[in-house]
Design a protein around this nucleic acid. Structure first.
Lengths: 291, 291
DNA sequence: AAAATAATGGAATAAAAATTCTATTCATCG
DNA sequence: CGATGAATAGAATTTTTATTCCATTATTTT
């Protein structure tokens, strides 16, 4: 008889918050939920709420043990806290936080797949993809650029008697854009465009500075020319992708940009933004120095 | 005797990178280390390096299993990779990333703010401006592009026996990028680059299609050449800025892009995204038609 | 071409972490 | 002031995850 009564009770012994069983799926929802129920919580669980609200950013990268110490409670208490919020346990809650963090770099292969599947193979859909990829690349550039290296690069280039701009194939648009910008600002620069297969080395003098641009698969001409310049003792500023760039070997001042792909194609939004910034900063610096 | 020799060998069987045993303690150090040794790595470990460099932000919140799948290797290989970098294992490496995690957390807006705040006309602040301008331009492009014109342009160009790409000065990077993309996709195209001041008209045949790119102040050569092509009865696709472009007058199929300025300078993010989309769409269309 | 060394994949093991369970303490209410 | 149900701490258990080991395969060296 007593058994039947017991079946009707809550399993965990927690009386409140029988409201919903659905777990929050976004940070907003989570915060909302937290605010909603934290007032009615018992002491230890409120401590958890307090700590979590204050240290939201640690959840994704901590263990229950760490968090419970931080909140000054037992792991089991923290556990109950998670369940109270609607999660099955800590792991599920952490999963939410990890996902919202990683969400910035969505899986492009999948998205493109979806796009194709939905029959939206139209040019405008493609454009939408490239626009999105460009936006992500720009965001990533903003957060990953090394401000110190950038400043060093500007200083070195602003002081150069002559700037050599080198970049072929996919890097060539970047190189030509830089040259255009330098020309507009009356900064002495030469674009090595490979026309006429002349040996470009003869144009490079001691003290000149080179901007070498290349991305995987790296073009040998660019690397060779950069190496040659380094051999003369000249500075080389490299615009390249993060890793395994051979330009790192020759001790170039490296500015790393990573672009988001769309299928097999890679746009240049971030790279060009970096390039124009570099050019304008050099121009500004030179004006300063002239005064 | 052989025993003593064996004792001198490396425990793991990994021969290189006996350089240091110290683990990187910061992201910069980590990247530097990675670049330094990744060249000499065997295949699988390089895959790890590549993946890690490209997905640095995921390390803090992923398991070895997940990361090794991402890199396309076995967990044990990923393990060896961590050790090669100087860590005792994956956990130690992850610890480093988790510690620096909090710094990276602030969202895009905040980071941009930080960049801006780093000195009124410092290179980073300038970069922040261009990044923001780029984003705005891309947004603008996505919402303002005329899907119908775009599709028409793709159709016309996909059917062309030969595509002439014309664009000088600021438009030249766009033109060269288009040529690069066409080349990669085996689409017959010729870039008119003005080298040698040869008369480009002789290369243009009846039935060819031209992509003419020019922005205010419009370059006369581009306009003249486009007009000439139209005179032959050829189609011309124009990539230009919205208003009053002279290319409109010659009845070109116009794709309008407006870029957001930063001071006197104008980046090319949106224009290039449009260009690459156009190229890829043409490639896709041609593949379709071949079948 | 044979021998030696390095690299790899996959299973086995060890470690760490999450989750549950239970005895005990605390608060509430008749 | 006792009885009842909620809350808690800490240990026990289960699950997940990292790490190591070894047999097999590739690569290099002689």
């Amino acid at each position: 008889m007593e058994r039947y009564e017991r079946q009707e009770k809550t399993k965990t012994g927690i009386k409140y918050a029988m409201t919903e069983q659905t777990a929050p799926v976004s940070l907003e929802e989570f915060n909302h939920r937290l605010a909603e129920i934290s007032e009615a919580m018992p002491k230890r669980l409120r401590q958890c709420a307090e700590f979590v609200a204050q240290n939201t950013d640690r959840i994704a990268v901590s263990t229950v043990a760490e968090l419970s110490i931080g909140a000054g409670v037992q792991p089991s208490a923290f556990m109950r806290f998670c369940q109270l919020l609607g999660f099955s346990g800590f792991s599920e809650m952490q999963k939410m936080f990890r996902e919202t963090y990683a969400q910035k770099w969505p899986d492009y292969a999948t998205r493109l797949e979806n796009l194709r599947a939905s029959g939206a193979d139209s040019p405008s859909a493609l454009l939408a993809e490239f626009v999105e990829a460009g936006r992500l690349s720009l965001e990533n550039l903003a957060s990953s650029i090394d401000a110190v290296s950038l400043e060093q690069a500007v200083n070195v280039l602003a002081a150069a008697p002559m700037i050599h701009v080198v970049g072929f194939r996919r890097a060539f648009p970047v190189a030509s854009y830089l040259s255009y910008a330098f020309e507009k600002m009356d900064i002495p620069a030469v674009l090595h465009d490979g026309v006429g297969k002349l040996n470009p080395r003869h144009a490079i003098r001691k003290g000149d500075v080179m901007i070498a641009i290349t991305f995987s698969p790296y073009s040998q001409e660019t690397i060779d020319l950069a190496a040659y310049a380094r051999g003369l003792g000249n500075s080389v500023v490299a615009i390249t992708d993060t890793m395994t760039s051979p330009l790192r070997r020759i001790d170039a001042l490296t500015l790393a940009v990573s672009e988001v792909d769309v299928g097999a194609f890679r746009a240049l939004s971030a790279t060009l933004s970096l390039a124009i910034s570099l050019a304008v900063a050099i121009g500004a610096k030179r004006d300063q120095m002239d005064e």
